[in-house]
Design a protein around this nucleic acid. Sequence first.
DNA 1: TGTTCGTTTGGCAATATTGCCAAATGAGGA
DNA 2: TCCTCATTTGGCAATATTGCCAAACGAACA
Lengths: 103, 103
Amino acid sequence: MTKNTDKLVTLERIHERAKVMKAMAHPSRLMIIDELGHGERCVCDLQELVGHDMSTVSKHLKVLKDSGIVKDERRGKQIFYTLRVPCILKFFHCIESVIDAHN
Amino acid sequence: MTKNTDKLVTLERIHERAKVMKAMAHPSRLMIIDELGHGERCVCDLQELVGHDMSTVSKHLKVLKDSGIVKDERRGKQIFYTLRVPCILKFFHCIESVIDAHN
DNA sequence: TGTTCGTTTGGCAATATTGCCAAATGAGGA
DNA sequence: TCCTCATTTGGCAATATTGCCAAACGAACA
């Protein structure tokens, strides 16, 4: 309730936000998010999309998962990833407008 | 018009998006964006807000400017920064929902 | 012209991120 | 149980980001 407490909470919020933004701030991870906007995908699908080593893709997925952007689910031998919060996709339009306004 | 061209354009888009997202992916820069949501501010205001060396804040502002998120304007001795595309602010709500869904 | 004020730039050390390879894991099937 | 398949983890080198200090800059004003 004090100003100090308010400031602390806000700072923590800011860091949580930064974690989510950071998770989105990489070309491969943006591609993955975009692709997951069309439905769930297994790691092998995403590896083909991104074109990097599967271990690298797996680490990107871990970043996305730890930030809360995606969730995973094993079915049979494969693990499928899904977007948790689709509102993220809408943001791309805003990003495009930043790019357009800039160029 | 070929698939190749399409893919190249898309890749470039992805990298442009990543640049904007990267610019937002730091606590100090998120604080700055949030503050600029309330109106234009000079560097000195933002330094007080962020609490780092002014040279550091200036470099953060450069990142934001290069990505197209903010613009600057000198008036007298001070330089004022403004948000170029306010839709970015709306995105914070989406980010919060990612955080809430995750915790 | 010289000085001050607000801001940016250069340079550097500390830290974080990225991507590959090799090894580990763990569920499913022989 | 042993083997295979899909994925994750550990480790490492290459690269990028961050923040400080000192120096440079450029507009305003004496």
